[in-house]
Design a protein around this nucleic acid. Structure first.
Length: 581
RNA sequence: GCACCCAUAGCUCAGCUGGAUAGAGUGUCGCCCUCCGAAGGCGAAGGUCGAAGGUUCGAAUCCUUCUGGGUGCACCA
């Protein structure tokens, strides 16, 4: 139930009626007519811009349209007052029981209150993490993982048919490096002294892989040339790394639907097929790129390469798909991979990349645009850096000194819930400060705590009422008499609840799950404000020992709040707590 | 040199396909704890929304230019 959408429908219906009465001209576009919460509550419960938006196309004065609309709207029994204000705003006040209906709807629908049909089953592929299978996930990956996962859940909540996908880069040179590094660990496990030169991965996490390999092969591979073992070890090592990565993801509560292997594209004609598709559109040619201006690499020399004419689809320059020696560039399999997404009949694609891949956005969009003839939109969300702090001091990370922070370090120290929520307290394209101490702090400036605390307080009251023998089961609260909820602070809270379905749609449309986190913080704020008013105004306390009916109506309200908090935290992948410990 | 992202209160940040007097936390100042959980509460002060133009009835939001910060820039993944 989206109250704003319902009132908007009423406004549109009224406008249509005015057209048939000849008050308004035909052929008006109502798409921009909005019904929103007013910025200032003193203006009313809802506001619509209809008169201002339509003034120009209807060639009428905004106030004249507004006046005509007022007469229509006040005839509806949900509206108590409709008045024209300012340049042509129409401020509406709703009957109290309309607001109370929000509580009933939340209690009836539970977690489904707020779900939207906006997606209408659109098939959307959300690709995220996609870290190279060369080691465990670190902090940067964590943000991408949390963001992508929350975005996927958000879209699912708005009735998109979501596929969560991880692209495994298991075919490039980096997995050869991995294999060589593991081979060194293997030699080590066979009692040899080894040196980790530049260009190998020295991480400890490869030690058990080398040992396992020694267990499986004994010393059969010792002293053998690379050609003998590279392929086997590469596969063995990438499997081991993907196992690590899956464990990391699981510890965060991230579950992928599809792990798509880059290697599986090779030898099957899929890369050739994707490039053929581009070639058929006349977008592949042999050519020589201009050197980059201003920053010319020292070893630059003109080379003829196979190029994709990405500049035809919004890119700045054309991009090579083959190296000068004829082998694929990394871009080629990526094109093929995205081609499979188009062929798998997704209606929309979303890629979540780290900000350091920003330079990759245009060419990828160009490729998808070309391959789908502009039919399949690709949105690429970049997640900015996470800056770590401890005791207010920047936490310097160094691979060499072993202070590189991994996903598992975060989860071990602060838990998956805090990790996830904090990662979503900033827009994806803004850098994020993550302070190990602050995120565990129990105070109002810690949003995780503040939201969880609200939920815990609500649970506490429900327990208390139960202990006092008052029935506060959802079934009973559904029938509770709500007409007593008239105090401004109570209505404020209800109105905040009413915004939830609307917020879900805004967040889903903009692909911005952080809006959910901010909304929950605001909702918790309204709840705490009402609680605190109970300190002074006894009638506002949720638990009224000598008044069962009042207790039930007030617990119905806060139970609805808990329902929305749980639903919102569910989207973020955070478990609501019932008690603060 | 080019591209992308960012610039909002002292600080950290929200700001809804453009909407009314631009919001929150924190910090500062004043008052408040016999009270369902004070791990706080109420109030005040605090802004040329980086700058200048433009579009619009209306711009923090859209366009152009500029300034300042971040990131990336043939063949590496």
């Amino acid at each position: 139930m989206n109250l704003f959408a319902e009132i908007r429908t009423l406004v549109i219906d009224s406008l249509t009626a005015l057209q048939s009465e000849g008050v308004l001209p035909e052929g008006l576009d109502f798409a921009n007519v909005a019904v929103e919460p007013p910025r200032d509550a003193a203006h009313g419960d809802m506001a619509t811009n209809a008169a201002m938006v339509l003034a120009k196309p209807a060639k009428m004065k905004p106030r004249d349209i507004a006046e005509a609309l007022v007469a229509k709207l006040t005839a509806d029994d949900r509206i108590t007052v409709a008045e024209v204000a300012g340049p042509g705003f129409l401020n509406l006040r709703l009957k109290a029981d309309v607001w109370h209906g929000v509580i009933t709807a939340a209690l009836t629908k539970g977690a489904e209150f707020g779900m939207s049909n906006m997606g209408m089953g659109t098939r959307v592929n959300v690709e995220y993490v996609s870290a190279n299978p060369t080691g465990p996930l670190h902090v940067g990956h964590t943000r991408g993982a949390v963001f992508g996962d929350a975005l996927a859940s958000l879209l699912a909540y708005a009735n998109y048919d979501v596929t969560r996908e991880y692209y495994i880069n298991d075919a490039g040179a980096q997995v050869d490096v991995l294999a060589r590094s593991v081979y060194l660990r293997y030699l080590e496990a066979n009692g040899q002294e080894v040196a980790f030169v530049d260009g190998t991965y020295p991480g400890d996490y490869l030690i058990p892989v080398g040992q396992a390999l020694a267990g499986a092969y004994g010393d059969k591979l010792v002293g053998k040339p690379e050609s003998v073992w590279l392929e086997d070890i590469r596969e063995y090592a990438t499997d081991a790394m993907m196992h690590l990565i899956r464990e990391d993801l699981a510890s965060l509560g991230v579950e992928m639907d599809v792990f798509y292997s880059e290697k599986s594209l090779y030898g099957t004609g899929q890369i050739e097929g994707a490039l053929k598709a581009l070639e058929n559109k006349g977008l592949i040619y042999e050519g020589v790129l201009e050197p980059p201006k201003g920053k010319k690499p020292d070893d630059w020399e003109p080379r003829e390469q196979t190029l994709f004419k990405s500049s035809d689809h919004g890119d700045d320059v054309d991009r090579p798909v083959k190296k000068s020696d004829g082998s694929w560039t990394y871009f080629a399999p990526d094109i093929a991979y995205h081609y499979t997404k188009v062929e798998r009949e997704f209606d929309e694609l979303i890629d979540v990349f780290g900000a350091d891949h920003g330079g990759y956005v245009k060419r990828m969009k160009a490729a998808v645009s070309a391959l789908s003839d502009g039919e399949v939109p690709l949105d690429i969300k970049l997640t900015q850096l996470v800056k770590l702090f401890k005791n207010g001091e920047p936490f310097k990370m160094s691979k060499r000194a072993g202070t590189f922070i991994m996903l598992r370090d975060l989860v071990e120290q602060v838990g998956p819930d805090v990790t996830r929520f904090v990662m979503l307290t900033r827009k994806n394209d803004a850098p994020l400060d993550f302070d190990f101490d602050k995120v565990l702090e129990q105070s109002k400036d810690n949003p995780v705590f503040y939201v969880q605390y609200a939920n815990a307080r609500i649970c506490s009251i429900l327990r208390k009422a139960n202990e006092a023998g008052i029935d506060v089961s959802d079934a009973t609260l559904l029938d509770a008499e709500l007409s007593g909820l008239t105090h401004e602070a109570e209505i404020n809270l209800v109105q905040k609840l009413a915004e939830w379905p609307r917020l879900v749609e805004v967040a889903a449309r903009t692909h911005e799950p952080h809006r959910v986190a901010f909304y929950l913080y605001e909702l918790a704020g309204e709840f705490h404000a009402l609680w605190n008013k109970g300190n002074d105004v006894v009638d506002l306390r949720f638990f009224q020992e000598d008044n069962i009916a009042a207790t039930q109506s007030k617990t119905a309200l806060i139970r609805a709040v808990a329902v929305v908090i749980s639903a919102g935290l569910g989207i973020l992948g955070v478990t609501p707590v019932e008690e603060m410990r």
